[in-house]
Amino acid sequence: MSDREHENEGGAAGARGRAGSLATMTDHGDPAAAQAVHERFPDVTCVAEYQGDVRVHVEPAHEVEVIRWARDELGYALFVDRLGADHGEDAEPRFDVITVVYNIKTDKRLIFITTLPEEAPETPTLIDVYRGANWFERETYDMYGIRFTGHPNLTRILMPERFPDFPLRREYPMEGKGDFAAPRRAIGGNVDGTDGKVAVPPHPGEPGEKHGDPFGRTPGQRT
């Protein structure tokens, strides 16, 4: 946390003035609740904080139990978000499943993070705790291939059914693959394809070394 933020925290809310909005933007973390979770489940959680966001790391096996406890005992009744994240091919554990929940009584937010391995990433579904997790888990499966055991309908939601890959994995190329590759010209590749971008035949009218002069002249020839 920066020094500026500490200054703002010192002032009373009324005296803060219009300039101190970063302080009110970062006061929604709930270290006390995170501590309570940690005390209740000491072996499965650890706590991290940045810019006021309190993140609780949970083992996949205990995730549902911990979040249900937070909902029932701590009052985190509003489901906000459930998303996946990827640390990259080399990282181990590779995937994160992040759940954001909100307490409407105390106006505090709590973030749960579960890490999953690259091989067969799998975690129990959260539908029993928040029914709204249904589509969010489908999207996470759609984008990362993370499976949620016990999910009633774990199918693609945003991508087409016949899409073969998991597009938000970091190794998936920006310009697409196979049937779903973007034309090279559309993604700003150079003409001869030496930049390693997807090889699609260049437009016939395009000048370039490979297919030479559009009028069939050899170098140096005068028309």
């Binding site: 920066s2 500026r4 933020e5 003035g17 219009r18 300039a19 101190g20 909005s21 970063l22 933007m25 970062t26 810019q51």
Partner: peptide
């Protein structure tokens, strides 16, 4: 919020 920059009052 990520970069810890605050925007000036008029911009707010």
């Amino acid at each position: 919020k990520l970069m810890d920059i605050e925007c000036p009052p008029r911009a707010q």
